[in-house]
Structures are given as structure tokens and as C-alpha cells.
Design a binder for these strands. Structure first.
Lengths: 197, 197, 197, 197
DNA sequence: TATGAATGAGTCTTCATTCAT
DNA sequence: GATGAATGAAGACTCATTCAT
């Protein structure tokens, strides 16, 4: 019984955490980390300001938790890519790229991307999390190159591929009229080269 | 004579503008747009707060002016690239890429990149300027492809190339231990492809 | 039987009251009345915040109850002094003085002294309790002077003696290097005078 | 001319400082350090909240500045006492004592006394200032004992005298019906002893 | 009895902006 | 042109208190 009660309160706690992070994410996308006030987050979360501080010690903690959550989602997406058979890698990645560019996102990264990178430039804790995730992503890709393609020396390939993914993501931000379909042949060729030999 | 005096005062005015923008840029790099107060800008510019408002109507105007100035610098750098002879294009661009990555920058864009892109997501005026510059850069590159390489249909190539440039720039932010030299062969190959045929 | 149960629950109630007041006292000494939050008191008392409100209607009530408890302790100590034989009064009081000064306290008053007096300046209820206790202390001393020393007109003596006690207590706060032993002869002489004739 | 302007602005600055400290003192006496909000201080000073922060970095700085100002006033009063001729010392001090007790104060200390001592118990900076002042006061009294009374070994006398002064001050707070005139003979006798031999 | 989730007014502090000098 | 005094609205955060469980 004690256990049931505790589980219940834990569930509620997790629900509240998620509720707050969802609200914060929504606000941050609209207004940025520093353009969003805690009272806006509270309003969006349908919660009192004070209550938010019951769950997060500070606004920064919310940002950090959100960055962490984004990371986890990134890792999930990246891991999914691992299930693609070796012979379909080029097409699979091209498709993912195409899909996510249509949503103004990067295959493995969310809309909060720039906000997070901008913040990372001056908040070491955020930077640390960014480094961590990137390291894990590279690790996963390394595994992919080795186990699926038999390519051992893949560091540069992974860097180039990641650069292309993030770079294409930022293209939709700089050029709203970008012709995504026109880009596919060239990126497909690029991926063929990356995965090739 | 009237004209001379006015020119003189115009010069002073421009000097003041530059002084303020330099100070603002320095602060923005350190603290971000929203983490920088006008009094910090004033202190950095060795000027009183009130005096800054003599030259700029608001903080936002400073941001906009700075974004504009960054654009101009971008265009200057891009134009310089145009002077490279056709046969040296691959090596020239590779070299530029290598140089700027070592400074944690993008060949044609400054450190304030992410700050500007993050701001563009919610400030339409900033977004507008970002679009404008990008359009002008693409125009210049289009001219380059047509006049130097005889390639008419270059839209996708330019998009891919730009993506790679910006993407590589963000790689140094996500992976502080990146092996830049190891990347060069792969980017050289990529550029060869972009400029090829 | 009903009575027995009630007595039991009364005991528990009193224990809880004491538990809370002890915790509050500990916090108040460290942080002051207004620097101490109810949640700190709750944490110190190993009790939930809500539960404290089961026993005390408000934070002010806790302060008042604490002030009252301090008073009772004061009265107990003062009463103990009454048991000293007339011929040992000077030495007895001198000794008590010396002892308590070493603990940075006043013979008949606790560390919360200043906190209480400061609070009394703006909280009439606290002031009232301070007056009350002081009146009772004076009464006890009056009895002592009359019954043990045969001195009827003792008001001024009691005032002077009390002043000296409290005053010496505050000396240890203003001069941390005070030479307590060096003071004893002079206070002994003073007490001899107070109790004399 | 520059000098005149500067003097003028310095004067204004000092006036503002005093204005804020006066307002703060008034509030602190009524509501205590921690019961007084900055907006109340601002209202009392007829100034905007923000402007107060132009002159003081924080509320604590105001408290410290106020404590310092009280100290200076204490030292002034103590120094004045030094002008009393040796033969009038007992009467002079008795008179001062009587006067100040009628104003619910201590001869050499203000109404904020208890607030300051309570604060000193947990704010080391305030404690430091309290120690400092007391040391200076003792120094002045030492000089008085040596130069005017030829008494070299006066440490204990000064401690006892200070205790009596502060102690009597707190008597008016504990016993609002205190008979000040009745006390005078006994304190006069006490002072005679302190200054005697 | 006991918990701690929930509230929202209130705290200190900052900041863009204005204006008298 | 140049200063910095002055404003007041907002910001992050705290806290006494209440209430559902």
C-alpha cells in the first residue's frame, strides 16, 4: 500500500515535471530562453509560479532539464536510424533529411537548436550537455559505420555527415523559399560518398 | 564649407555608431542579446547611457544595426571569394574553411551567428535581414557559378555548399575536440563535386 | 478511561508543541524571526509544514509561544536564585553572572534576547509578554529583598541590578575579547552595594 | 567650473544618500530591518525603488551604511563627554544618562540598538562594525580615564560602565513604568565608584 | 493525525528608456 | 553633443498559509 501511494505520488511528480517542461518548451520556442518569463511558463503550464519552484530550483534548472530532454529525444531518433539495413542507408537517411527539413528541423535535433547553441556559448552547463550528446551521437554512428559498413576509420565521415545535417537544418531558416526536393539528388550523392567504399 | 562641416560631423557620427556597435558586439558575444544591458554597452563603449540613445532609438535598433553590419562583412568576405580563379576554387575554399574553423567561425559568418539565428526565430525584422543577406550571398555565388564555371543550374549546389559551411561551423561548437585537418580531404572531395562537371 | 486517553493525547500534543518550539528556537537563533521560513522550521522539527499549522495558527503564534516559554525559563532561573542564603547572595549572584557571561548569555535570559527585544519594538503582543515577565521577575526580587534582606524600598536596587545583568550580557556581544574575570571584582563590589545596608 | 559642477553633483549625491538613509532609519525603527521592504523605503524617501539602487547596491548595503552612520553618531556623543571637567564627571554622566533614558535611548546609542545587535548575531559585517565602534568607544574612555583621572588600569571599569549604560537603556524597554528619577542616586553612587580612587 | 501540493501576493533587484542640466 | 539622475514596470524567486488526500 505504501508502495502504491508512493508510486502514485511519483507519477504525479513526473507528470508535473513533464507539464512544466512542455510549457517551458512551448514558451522558449516562441520567445527564447531569456524572453520567456517564469510567469509565462506558469500560465502556459496552468500552474502558479510558486508551484513551479516546487519542482525546479530555478529557471536555469528548467533550461537544463529541457536541454537534457531534447538530448534524449535526439538519441532516440539517432538510435532508430541504426535499424536501417546497410543497403538502404543512403535512401533512409535521405528520406529522414527530407522529412525533417519540411518541418524546419534537423533530422536529429529540434527547433530549440539555435537557442540551445546560443545559450551554450555562455552557459558552461548547457555547453557540457551539448558536448555529451554529440559525443554519444558520434559513438552511435561509429558503431553503425563499423558494424554495418565495415568502415573502421569513420571519424571524419561522421563529422562531415553531421555538419551536413545541421547545416541543411539552418538553411531552411536562412532561405524560407528553399527548394528541398531539388536538394535531394546532391545530398543523396553526398551520403553515397560518406557511406561508400 | 557647410558641406565640409557636415561631412566632418557625419564622420564623427559614423565613428560613434561604430564605437557603439563594437561595444555592443563585444557584450553580445559574452552575454547574448538579452543578457546584455544597455548600461553594460555604455560602459564598454565608454559613453553614457543617455548618449547612446542619441544615436540609436532603442536596444532593438542596435541589434538590427549590428545584424546589418555583420551582413555587410559577410558580403565582403563572400565577394572576396569571387576573385579566386576557377581552377583554384576547390583549394581556395578548402583553405578558407580550414582557417575559419580554427577560429570557431564559419567562412562567411561571425560568432554571433547563433545569437542572430535564435533571435530571427522571434524577431521578424531580424529574420528579414537574415533572409536578405542570404539571398544576396546566393546571388553572388550564382554569379560565380555562371561566370567562372559556366554552370547555370546551380541553386542546389549553392544550398548544399552553404549548408556544409554553416554545418561545419556548428561542429566546432558541439565537438570541441574536432579533428579539423582530418576533415579536409572529405570536404575537399565534397567541394570538388559541388564545383564539378 | 476517556480521561486517560485524553491525557495521553494531551501529552502527545505537548510533546509536538515542544518539538516545534525547539525547532523554531534553533532556527530563530541562526536566522532570526524574519529570516526563518516555516519550511525551515518544519524541516528542523522533522514535520511537514501543514502539520505545524495543526498546532499553531500562524508563525506569529509560534513566536509568541516561544517568547512565553523563554519567560517561563527565566522565571525558573530567577526563582532558583531565591534559594541562595542571604549571606551568600553576593557570591552566588557573582558566580551566576560569571557562568552565564561565558556562554554569551545573561543570567536570566537566553540568546534570543535581542531578537525578542527588537521584535517587541513593533509587535505589541511580544512587548506585552516582555513587560509581564519583567514585572514578575521584579516581584520575585522584591520578595527576595524583603524576606531575605529586610529591605523594603528596593525598586531602584532591582532596576540597577537588572540593568547590570542585561548590560553585561550585551557586553560580550560588543566586545568579543572581554576579560570576564577582570570584571568580577567590580561587579562583586556593585552587588555588595545593591544588597547592602 | 568643472570643479563647481562636480561639487554640486557630489553634494546632490550626499543629499540623496542621507535622504535614503533617513528614510530607511525611519522605516527600520517602525518595522525592523527585515520587516521593511525596499518599496517602503522608497516611498518614505519619496524616490523610485530603482533610483535607490543607483546609490546603494543592495538592501544590506543600506543596513551597513546605516549602522555605520549610527556608529559615527555614537562616537560624536562619546567624544563630547570627554569635554566634561574631571570634577564634574559623575554629575555630567548622570545627567546624560537621565536625559537619554527619558527618550528611551542609551546615552551613546540609538533606538536601532536591538535591531543592530540582533542583526549582528547573524550578519558578520554588522558584527564587525559593532566590534569596531565598541573598540573605539573604549579607546576614548581609556583616554579619559588616563588623562583626566590618572587611572591607568581602567579596562574593567569601562566594561562595567558600558554595561550599566546599555543595561539601563534596555530597562526602559522592559519596564515602561520605570522610575528614572528614583534610579539616579544609585547610578550616581555607581559612577562615583567607577570614577573613584 | 499527517503530508506536501498548491497558491499568489510580496520580496529584492534589474533594466530600457526619458529628461533636466 | 553629453551626462547620469530618475522612473516604474517587470523579472526571478520566496513564503505564509490552505487544502485535498
Amino acid at each position: 500500500m505504501t508502495k502504491a501511494v508512493q508510486t502514485k505520488s511519483q507519477k504525479r511528480q513526473e507528470a508535473r515535471h513533464a507539464q512544466i517542461l512542455d510549457a517551458a518548451a512551448a514558451c522558449f520556442v516562441k520567445e527564447g530562453f531569456h524572453g520567456t518569463s517564469m510567469s509565462k511558463v506558469a500560465a502556459e503550464a496552468k500552474m502558479s509560479v510558486g508551484h513551479i519552484y516546487h519542482y525546479f530550483a530555478s529557471k536555469e534548472e528548467i533550461i537544463l532539464a529541457l536541454v537534457e530532454r531534447e538530448q534524449e529525444q535526439t538519441l532516440v531518433k539517432v538510435s532508430e536510424a541504426l535499424t536501417i539495413p546497410a543497403e538502404d542507408l543512403v535512401e533512409g537517411f535521405t528520406e529522414r533529411l527530407s522529412d525533417s527539413l519540411c518541418n524546419h528541423a534537423t533530422p536529429f535535433q529540434s527547433i530549440l537548436n539555435h537557442e540551445i547553441l546560443a545559450e551554450a556559448q555562455r552557459n558552461p552547463k548547457v555547453a557540457e550537455k551539448v558536448y555529451e550528446t554529440d559525443a554519444m551521437v558520434r559513438e552511435i554512428f561509429t558503431k553503425m559505420f563499423r558494424e554495418r559498413l565495415g568502415i573502421e576509420d569513420c571519424e571524419a565521415r561522421i563529422e562531415a555527415m553531421s555538419a551536413m545535417f545541421h547545416g541543411l537544418g539552418s538553411r531552411t531558416q536562412r532561405n524560407p523559399n528553399i527548394d528541398i526536393d531539388g536538394l535531394l539528388p546532391i545530398t543523396r550523392e553526398f551520403l553515397r560518398q560518406i557511406f561508400g567504399k
